[in-house]
Design a binder for these strands. Structure first.
Lengths: 223, 223
DNA sequence: TATATGATTATGGTATACCAGTGAAGAGGG
DNA sequence: CCCTCTTCACTGGTATACCATAATCATATA
C-alpha cells in the first residue's frame, strides 16, 4: 500500500476514497471497525469535508454503513455476500459477452485480438509480479466491449468488491493463468461475433472462479 | 411534486437528493441543464453542504455528471440507455426470481400469497390512482424475496432510473394491469419453489415491458 | 448500594469563510 | 474593425466553526 501518493491531481476526496477502500479490501480494517470522521481527518492532516465525501461513496458501495449515533462502521464481507456477487457476475458477464459479440465492430475486433495476444505472451512469460493488475485490466477491457456504460459500472463495482478475495483465490492453485486463458477464449469468441458461445464461456468462467473460491475458502475454514 | 415537504425527519441531503432526483426523472430538468451548488442552496434556503452531498449521490447513480471546471450537468437519458437497462434487468430479475424460488421459506411463501391476492384485488378494483406506487411496492417485495441485499440494491437503482419512462409506458396501452398480473404469476411460481419457471416468467416479463416501451417510443417519434 | 439526574463529551449535520483555477468579458492597441 | 491581453467574477474544493442530540459518566440522594 502506498503511504500517501499525492502525486496525481485529483480531488482530496478521491484520494481518501481510494485509500479507505484499499484499506478495507486488503483487510487492514476489519468488520465493525469505526471510521470516525474527525480521527481520519486528523490522521491525514486534512479537514472532515473530503473525508465525509469519501465515506458517502463507501457507503453507497456497501463497504461501510452509517449507524445512527454510532458513526460509520466497516461492514462484514461474508461468504454469503461473495456468493451473491458471483451469482450476479455470472449473469452480467454473460450479458456483457453476448452484447459484445452482437455489437462487435472492426476496431473492437482488432483490440480483442491484441489483448488476446497480450494474454498469451503474459502467460508464457510466467510473470507473477503484476499479474493481478494485468488481469484486472483484461477484465476492464472485456467489460468495455459490451458498450454499455451502466453495465460496465456495475461490473467494475462488483469486481472491486470481491477483488481482495479473488486475489487470494487466484494466487493459490494457479487459478490465475487458467482465468486469463478463459478470458482469452472469451475475447476470441467475441471477436468472431458468436454471441451465444461467448455468453456460455463467460458464465462458465464465473462458475469456475466461484468453485475455486469456495474450494479455497473450505481450505481456510470459513468466513 | 411536493413543494418542499420538510415534514419527515431525515437529513437535509436526503431531501435535496430526492427532490433533485424526482425533478430529473420527471423531466423538470433537461439534459445539459447545469445544477449550480450555490443556486440550488439559495433556492432552498440552505447551505451548499447538503446540496453537494446530494449531487454526489446523483452522480453515483449516473443521473448527472460533473464536468471539470463546468460543474454538475444533467445527463441525457437516451433510448439506448433505457435498452441497456432493460437488458440488465432481464438478467437480474431472472436471477432474483430463481434465487427467490430456491430460497423460499414458509414465511416468504405466506407473504407471496398475500401480495398475490392484493394484486388480484387491485386489478379488479381498477383503481388507477396510486397504481404506480402500488406497482413499485410489488416490485420491491419481489426483489426482496431473492434475499440478496446487493442484488436488491442494484435492481432498485435500475428501476428508479427507468421509472419515469415506465410510468408513461404503463399508463398508455393498459400495460400496467398486464405487468401486475405477470408479477402475480411470478410470485405464485416463486412460492411453489419452481426456480426455472420463475426465472423464465421474470425474463419474459421484462421482455414484454421492453416491447411495450419500444412500441410506445415509436409512437412518440424518438428520444 | 442502587438509582436517578445532571453534566460532559463524542459525533454527525449544517453553515460559512476562504482559496485556487478557469473562462468570459472588457479595454486597449494594432 | 479585429485581435490580444488583462482582469474579475463564477464555481467547485477545502477548511473551520457552530449546533443539536444522544450516550456516557459522575455525583448526589434515597
Amino acid at each position: 500500500m502506498k503511504p500517501w501518493n499525492a502525486d496525481e491531481i485529483m480531488p482530496m476526496r478521491e484520494h481518501v476514497y481510494r485509500y479507505l477502500k484499499d484499506m478495507i479490501l486488503e483487510g487492514k480494517y476489519h468488520a465493525g471497525d469505526r471510521l470516525v470522521e474527525r480521527e481520519l481527518a486528523a490522521k491525514m492532516a486534512i479537514s472532515r469535508t473530503p473525508v465525509r465525501e469519501a465515506l458517502f461513496r463507501l457507503e453507497a458501495q456497501g463497504l461501510v454503513k452509517t449507524l445512527p449515533r454510532k458513526g460509520v462502521v466497516v461492514e462484514p464481507i461474508s461468504k454469503e455476500k461473495i456468493i451473491e456477487i458471483f451469482d450476479i457476475l455470472e449473469m452480467l458477464e454473460g450479458l456483457a459477452a453476448r452484447r459484445a459479440a452482437e455489437r462487435i465492430d472492426e476496431e473492437t475486433r482488432k483490440e480483442c485480438r491484441q489483448w488476446s495476444k497480450k494474454i498469451e505472451k503474459f502467460i508464457q512469460a510466467g510473470n507473477q509480479e503484476d499479474a493481478n493488475a494485468f488481469h484486472l485490466s483484461v477484465c476492464h477491457f472485456f467489460y468495455s466491449t459490451a458498450k454499455s456504460p451502466k453495465l460496465n459500472a456495475i461490473l467494475v463495482d462488483l469486481t472491486e468488491y470481491i477483488q481482495a478475495f479473488a486475489r487470494v483465490t487466484y494466487e493459490k492453485g494457479g487459478r490465475l493463468a487458467e482465468a486469463m486463458n478463459e478470458h482469452r477464449l472469451i475475447l476470441n469468441t467475441i471477436s468472431k461475433g458468436d454471441a451465444q458461445a461467448a455468453r456460455k464461456l463467460s458464465m462458465q468462467h464465473i462458475q469456475n472462479s466461484r468453485a475455486a473460491y469456495l474450494q479455497n475458502m473450505s481450505f481456510r475454514g470459513q468466513e
